[in-house]
């Protein structure tokens, strides 16, 4: 890791650990002041001037510290603004994953479901088709009728309804709502990698301390073998997410986003099972920290596409290309 990345990683970890139990507004102020949401913004514009791989460091840390704020979403919003050549307003900007509506003149009418921290954000950014192209739409949450929902981890996932709301809009070349959804999947893959790493750390610590039959649980081969699998899944999810973020910085990245979400979803399924099993009843309590990771891991597997969704997308594409092209295509992704 470069020196700059080490610094970014340490700063992110410190800020997220410090702000973990603070009310959202205060936590967000700390996050914003540390510049974590500005990792992709150019240095000239007061940002970190980072790449998508730098952004992954922040997003993975968000997962590893169970960050209860739309930090990854805000980073994605800055990338969208950059692609569309607009400046984002100040505030907490979230993403609209599933817009269902239309633009008329300069207003947006329709609803957006599953908006992370919609009720807390100042603005929501999404992509809507108009004419032959695609528009980045930035709407004020204050103009929306909010129907609150939460995912299983208790994270706000609200429905925002707009009625001819005034918006900022601009053509966003190279993007459409599917690409936005795929990048959302990439965000979650990094968070999943972080949360699995968090669950592994807790599991190792717990099994080394907890004694049964006169020795630590960690001494039992049955436990060691399970935790080894958990460590393997940590490595696999980290690698899959990192490869997707690398691809996002250099090319289209759609296959990689899909593959990373598919693989990290699978890792999340295995990891939550093992982490809970080795913790016994303690891991099932509200008091103990494990559920901050595992409930998010369950929620995030569904958000931005489950295994069926992405498996179908990749499967169709690969089948259409046929066996003669399979390997050449796979290799070409990394060249």
């Amino acid at each position: 890791m470069s020196e700059l990345r080490t610094l970014l990683s340490e700063t992110t970890a410190r800020v997220l650990a410090d702000s973990r139990n603070a009310p959202l507004e205060r936590a967000w102020t700390q996050i914003a002041q540390a510049g974590l949401a500005s990792v992709l913004i150019r240095e000239d514009d007061g940002g970190f001037g980072g790449t998508w791989s730098d952004a992954m460091i922040v997003m993975k840390a968000a997962g590893q510290h169970a960050c209860a704020a739309p930090l990854p979403e805000n980073i994605l919003a800055t990338a969208l603004a950059n692609a569309a050549g607009v400046t984002l307003p100040d505030g907490m900007i979230t993403i609209g994953p599933r817009p269902d509506g239309a633009l008329n003149g300069t207003g947006f009418t329709g609803s957006i479901a599953g908006v992370p921290w919609g009720r807390n954000a100042s603005h929501v950014a999404t992509i809507v088709a108009r004419g032959g192209g695609h528009q980045l739409v930035i709407a004020k949450v204050a103009d929306a009728k909010i129907t609150p929902h939460e995912n299983p981890a208790g994270e706000p996932r609200d429905t925002l309804a707009f009625d001819n709301a005034p918006i900022v809009t601009a053509e966003i070349p190279g993007w459409d709502s599917h690409r936005l959804y795929a990048f959302g999947a990439m965000l979650r893959s990094a968070q999943i990698a972080g949360a699995i790493a968090g669950a592994l750390e807790l599991s190792v610590t717990y099994t080394r301390e907890r004694q049964q039959f006169g020795r630590p649980l960690a001494n039992f081969q049955a436990i060691q073998q399970q935790l080894a699998v958990l460590a393997e899944e940590t490595a696999a999810s980290d690698m899959a997410a990192a490869a997707a973020f690398r691809a996002a910085g250099t090319g289209e990245g759609l296959f990689e986003c899909a593959a990373a979400k598919l693989r990290t979803n699978r890792a999340a399924r295995t990891a939550t099972g093992i982490a809970h099993q080795v913790h016994g009843a303690m891991g099932f309590t509200a008091e103990y920290d494990l559920h901050h990771f595992t409930r998010r891991l369950w929620a995030w597997q569904t958000e931005f596409g489950n295994e069926r969704f992405w498996g179908g997308k990749i499967g169709s594409g690969v089948a259409a290309r046929g066996p003669a092209n399979f390997w050449a295509d796979l290799v070409a992704l990394s060249e």
Partner: peptide
């Protein structure tokens, strides 16, 4: 079949990244 092909492709892609690292 799509599901299986997708899943196995994602796994090979991930393993290739790991092996190359």
């Amino acid at each position: 079949e799509k599901q299986l092909i997708g899943r196995m492709t994602a796994e090979m892609w991930t393993l290739r990244q790991m092996s190359m690292s």
